[in-house]
Design a protein around this nucleic acid. Structure first.
Length: 743
DNA sequence: GACCAAAGATATTTC
DNA sequence: ATCTTTGGTC
């Protein structure tokens, strides 16, 4: 036990050993948040204050849940198995499986991921003959999820206008469709399990008595429904219930777009009259230059709960800043720098390349690939989201639950078996008439479309029969063959990688089976199709955190969002340009800029020793070259903490003089702007610009302020230039009229 | 109904 | 740039 508490600082120790009352731990980046959480659990169990079965711990990512489990098993002599540790969605799923009858669901209900949900909505609109231009599926999806996260069933939505009333109508239809098909989307997992406990008092009391300690990680990212969900288990003064131990950092709240409410922290403090608020302010991760920069940046935000991070690790190295001509130059420079770091003995896996949006990874990947540096990209298209995997899963889903229309529609004609759009339309109409799933409707059909459909139904039934006794991996293997998927991809020219992925799916099934067996008594039988349902839930909830080459020493690429909670010796943060980071869309939302700044704060605090910030004068985005000012966040880093690797210029001067090579050696990757244009698509006939004006040139205008020339046309008196004035907008100006000054 | 080509829409972050 | 939808042809 003394081992457990050794090396904790005063505040950490205080937090870990708090009496079983509600507590809010405001934990800054790198302050040992996860450590406090896990140590608390271990301490509660070890000191006999809590039974493992009395612990409910909630995280946001599967990664975090796994790490917590791993740490606990090294801290505790007993296995942490009796505890409920997982993500909100994972735990909700567990509740619904255990009480599926009370929740009004069949045991083998399926989970729709966002893409499945979108497909289901599109299908719904089609069946109802609703104009999808008037009701864009994505927008409708957002609306439905938003309502669910607010805890609203259709009847509870306040609709003041026709448009909303119609959307509510569609929401209702969507629900009916899901119920008919026995499928549940992400938000539904939470809402359904919330309603289950809220309405079923005996059940609620059971869990309230059981979970004496509810521990929540990343509390600042909870949405309204998740907070209410937690409250169900907690003692709010009247009835019995567990103690809520919430750990969070309001400065790292970066998921507002998905409904996160930082306000939950204040509400929690107030509603539960939390007496124990502890601040963890000592940072053990970063050198003080990095930390000071982060503090300076976040200080520009208002409405913070307030805290001041410090470290005793010394200043460390200055933050390196690099200005590139183009995104390609930026990537080349990053790769050069990485090679230098590796030569100096750095581990590749301790180097992270962070960016604001996934699309930015392409250029970086390209350069890493050419340089032969091992790298690994997180996020983007994940394993279980790949087309071929989704197809395979759809067959598996039909085995587990034939009423899953999303799965049915996905593979009924894939590989093609002569069932086209027309036949499906007939089938959907009939399904609507009989109020049955597509699958169950097939026998009702007569005539020509009936026969090929009936064959498909027979195929699924054969699959179900033939796989009944098989172990999970063999079941998957059989389905890949019998469905014709393997043959289809074998025949396809580009199909090799897809075939490999399908084989990988068998591996994933084998791993899943092994894990499931490890958690059960050796002689306990595992009913194949129940296990299959578990596997499918796993696929939907985890989407595959690329376990393949996890151990490999590879450079880590990811968005800033997915970097939260991680740390690296060296961090490259690229694309620090206005419009990209902060993202242009963020300026439209209230508090959007502050959220971007929190994101910046998260990015900076990932670095332990070395931090690189870079930006490019021009960047290919959405097929167009754009010229942006460097990010305002760069200006918020105190000059004393930084070292410019390229000559620093005033912010307005995003571009240098035409063709200027930057001074100093090693500038080989710095090409003049025009060379950065791809030879394949040369800009036709650039206008002759006087006075050395050029695309990318920074200029200033008496009325519009600072800007950058982004395009030009015409010549002589008609010569016009297009200038991006940032906040003042993008304007075409006649050179003969406008008074422009090179800035 | 299958298949291919061309036009058209759409591009932030994720459980 | 990329994915999706649409249109035309066999």
């Amino acid at each position: 036990m003394s081992d457990l508490l050794a090396n904790l600082n005063t505040e950490q120790l205080q937090a870990v050993t708090l009496p079983p009352q509600h507590a809010l731990i405001l934990a800054g980046a790198g302050s040992g948040k996860t450590r406090v959480l896990t140590t608390r659990i271990a301490w509660l169990v070890q000191s006999g204050q809590a039974d493992p079965a009395g612990i409910l711990a909630v995280t946001f990512t599967n990664k975090a849940a796994k790490e917590m489990l791993a740490r606990l098993s090294t801290m505790l002599p007993v296995s942490p198995r009796g505890m409920w540790i997982g993500t909100f969605h994972g735990l909700a799923n567990r509740l619904l499986r255990a009480h599926h009858r009370d929740a009004g669901l069949p045991q083998l209900f399926q989970i729709l991921d966002s893409a499945d949900q979108l497909a289901a909505i599109k299908r719904l609109l089609k069946t109802l003959n609703v104009d999808d231009e008037k009701f864009p599926p994505r927008e409708l999806q957002h609306f439905i999820n938003g309502q669910k996260e607010a805890g609203n069933r259709p009847h509870a939505v306040e609709a003041w206008d026709d448009y909303t009333r119609q959307r509510v109508q569609l929401y209702q239809e969507y629900e009916a469709q899901c119920q008919r098909e026995s499928v549940v989307d992400f938000a539904e997992l939470l809402l359904r399990s919330y309603e289950l406990l809220e309405r079923n008092e005996p059940l609620r009391c059971h869990y309230q008595r059981r979970f004496r300690h509810i521990l929540v990680d990343e509390f600042q990212d909870t949405n309204r429904l998740q907070y209410r969900w937690l409250k169900l288990f907690a003692d709010e003064g009247r009835e019995g219930g567990g103690a809520l131990f919430c750990v969070g950092d309001d400065d790292q709240s970066i998921y507002r777009f998905r409904g996160a409410e930082v306000g939950n922290m204040r509400d929690f403090e107030r509603e539960f009259r939390v007496a124990n608020v502890i601040r963890l302010e000592q940072n053990y991760r970063s050198h003080s230059n990095i930390l000071d920069a982060a503090n300076a940046i976040i200080r520009h935000n208002s409405n913070r709960l307030g805290k001041n991070l410090w470290t005793d690790q010394g200043a460390g190295e200055p933050i390196r800043i690099f200005e590139a001509y183009s995104d390609g130059d930026e990537a080349r420079w990053i790769v050069d720098e990485i090679q230098q770091l590796v030569r100096d003995g750095a581990l590749r896996s301790e180097i992270a390349l962070l960016y604001r949006s996934n699309a930015q990874s392409r250029v970086l990947e390209h350069q890493l690939f050419s340089a032969g540096i091992a790298y690994r990209v997180y996020g983007g298209l994940r394993f279980f989201e790949r087309q071929e995997i989704k197809h395979a899963l759809a067959y598996l889903r039909l085995i587990a639950n034939a009423d899953d229309d999303t799965a049915f529609a996905r593979v009924v004609n894939f590989p093609t078996r002569g069932i086209g759009a027309r036949s499906l339309e007939v089938l959907q109409d009939a399904a609507r008439t009989y109020n049955t799933s597509l699958y169950a409707t097939v026998p009702h059909l007569t005539g020509k479309p009936g026969t090929s459909l009936a064959q498909f139904v027979r195929l699924v039934e054969d699959l179900r029969r033939d796989t009944a006794g098989l172990p999970l991996p063999e079941l998957v293997d059989h389905v890949l063959d019998a469905s014709g998927l393997r043959a289809h991809y074998k025949a396809e020219k580009e199909g090799r990688e897809r075939l490999e992925n399908l084989d990988e799916l068998i591996n994933a099934a084998a791993n899943f089976l092994a894990e499931a067996q490890a958690q059960r008594a050796p002689d306990e039988a595992l009913p194949t199709h129940a296990l299959l349902a578990d596997f499918l839930a796993h696929a939907s909830l985890e989407a595959g955190e690329h376990q393949a080459d996890q151990g490999a020493d590879a450079v880590q690429l990811m968005t800033v969002h997915s970097a939260k909670g991680l740390e690296f010796n060296a961090v490259f943060l690229s694309g620090l340009e206005e419009g990209l980071f902060p993202h242009e869309n963020s300026t439209l939302e209230s508090d959007g800029l502050e959220e971007e700044r929190r994101l910046m704060y998260v990015a900076v605090t990932r670095a332990r020793e070395r931090l690189y910030l870079s930006f490019a004068q021009s960047r290919m985005l959405h097929g167009q070259t754009r010229y942006n000012l460097r990010s305002r966040f760069l200006e918020e880093v105190p000059a004393g903490l930084t070292k410019w690797l390229t000559p620093p210029k005033p912010r307005s001067a995003a571009g240098g003089e035409f063709g200027a090579m930057r001074g100093g050696a090693g500038g080989g990757y710095l090409k003049p702007l025009f060379a950065a244009q791809t030879p394949r698509a040369p800009r036709p006939s650039f206008a002759q610009l006087p006075n050395g004006l050029r695309i990318g040139q920074a200029v200033s205008h008496a009325k519009f302020g600072q800007g950058v020339i982004v395009a030009a046309e015409g010549s002589g008196n008609d010569a016009k230039v297009q200038i991006n004035f940032g906040p003042a907008g993008v304007k075409w100006l006649l050179l003969s009229v406008a008074k422009l000054e090179a800035a």
